[in-house]
Computed example of a mutant assay.
Amino acid sequence: MSVTLAIVIAVVVVALVFDYTNGFHDAANAIATSVSTRALTPKVALALAAIMNFVGAFLGQKVAHTVSDTISPPESNHGLIIVMAGLIGAIVWNLITWYFGLPSSSSHALIGGLVGAALAATVAVSWDTVLQKVVIPMFISPLVAFALGGSVMLAILWIFKGAGPHKANRGFRIMQTVSAAAMALGHGLQDAQKTMGVIFLALLTGGYVGADDDLPLWVIFAAAAAISLGTWAGGWRIMRTLGRRIIALDPPQGFAAESVAASVLYTTAFVYEAPISTTHTITSAVMGVGATKRLSAVRWGVARTILAAWVLTFPMAASVAALSYFILHGITRL
């Protein structure tokens, strides 16, 4: 086995580990609202999310190619070390925010890690791609989710104003099965593709695929399986934050938040090819829905803590990745 092939295999394994951590870190995105409103039991919700994550991974490749275009490492073992360091930065930040129960963005951790490793290695970063497909959507998608969440919730309140609370809650609990499935499908569509993009970047850097090639089927299957297994493992710490600590949700609110978040995920993936954060999207939708009740219903202190994690994600993942690059590069030169 050549050294290059060995490093490529190592990068693929680490990428799938990241995908797994993404699954258990972001499992709460799809199921927290359904579990907190008792529309679904935790085990049923996790199974549903895992299955829909797997299916969603097969629905497109545009986001994957956007991720692979973020940096341009040299086609060499050194380039593979850069990709490896970027993944390590993302994994470390995922684990830190999971431990503290903060729903931060795995997407921005990954992009931040790749950019940090590239800067440390003084290789090209596609700043146009980072700005247009990552930074701008990072700010716009939560604002859109917040506004749409509030608008959809107001529409639901107006349409069902004559319905009894018990009857309405029972109906929306049933509808939440559909909205939770749609949210999980969108999570698989978005987040599994990010890992596919990194694996494709590693294969490209190692010289095993061409820049214009489609993703190999085994890459899609492996990424889909890893994120589904991670989702099944669950993310209970973050689930509590999304489901209860921001606002105590009822079934209509849960349905509104999930439906809005899923719509934003599909639009950005298919239309704008942007790897947005499922975490930012659902959290913002939850806050937008909650604000229609009254502004004080949203626990803004918790929201500020989450916002701080959002702001820190990109630079912190980049910093860890840069440090990882220097360590790995030093080891390979021994």
Score class of each variant (00 low, 15 high):
residue 232 W to L: 15
residue 135 V to L: 15
residue 169 N to F: 01
residue 334 L to Q: 05
residue 85 A to R: 01
residue 199 I to L: 00
residue 261 A to Q: 13
residue 272 Y to L: 14
residue 306 I to V: 14
residue 58 F to E: 07
residue 70 T to N: 06
residue 22 N to V: 03
residue 23 G to R: 02
residue 278 T to Q: 09
residue 178 V to I: 13
residue 273 E to Y: 10
residue 133 K to I: 02
residue 330 G to R: 13
residue 296 S to Y: 12
residue 301 G to S: 13
residue 216 P to H: 10
residue 185 L to G: 02
residue 308 A to S: 05
residue 221 F to W: 14
residue 292 T to I: 09
residue 307 L to I: 04
residue 215 L to R: 11
residue 82 I to D: 07
residue 110 L to R: 03
residue 46 L to V: 07
residue 186 G to H: 10
residue 284 S to V: 04
residue 103 P to T: 00
residue 320 V to Y: 13
residue 76 S to L: 12
residue 285 A to W: 01
residue 29 N to W: 13
residue 212 D to W: 05
residue 239 M to V: 11
residue 72 S to D: 11
residue 86 G to Y: 05
residue 111 I to R: 03
residue 323 L to F: 15
residue 334 L to F: 14
residue 198 V to N: 01
residue 124 A to K: 15
residue 9 I to S: 07
residue 110 L to N: 01
residue 64 A to T: 07
residue 253 Q to F: 03
residue 82 I to Q: 02
residue 43 K to L: 14
residue 154 L to P: 04
residue 137 P to Y: 08
residue 268 T to W: 15
residue 36 S to V: 00
residue 141 S to F: 06
residue 297 A to H: 13
residue 59 L to A: 14
residue 239 M to A: 11
residue 255 F to N: 05
residue 265 L to P: 05
residue 130 V to H: 11
residue 205 T to P: 02
residue 69 D to C: 01
residue 283 T to G: 02
residue 177 T to V: 11
residue 205 T to E: 14
residue 314 F to M: 12
residue 243 G to L: 03
residue 88 I to A: 03
residue 142 P to T: 06
residue 23 G to I: 00
residue 88 I to D: 01
residue 334 L to D: 03
residue 117 A to D: 11
residue 156 I to H: 10
residue 5 L to S: 09
residue 221 F to L: 15
residue 315 P to R: 05
residue 11 V to T: 04
residue 256 A to D: 09
residue 264 V to S: 12
residue 314 F to W: 10
residue 199 I to V: 14
residue 122 T to Q: 15
residue 25 H to T: 04
residue 76 S to P: 12
residue 36 S to Q: 08
residue 151 S to N: 11
residue 32 A to E: 06
residue 161 K to Y: 10
residue 160 F to V: 04
residue 200 F to G: 00
residue 22 N to W: 04
residue 274 A to W: 10
residue 55 V to D: 11
residue 91 I to A: 01
residue 316 M to I: 11
residue 193 Q to E: 15
residue 49 A to C: 08
residue 320 V to L: 14
residue 306 I to G: 00
residue 78 H to R: 12
residue 237 R to D: 13
residue 170 R to F: 06
residue 268 T to C: 12
residue 214 D to E: 12
residue 156 I to T: 06
residue 208 Y to D: 06
residue 200 F to L: 03
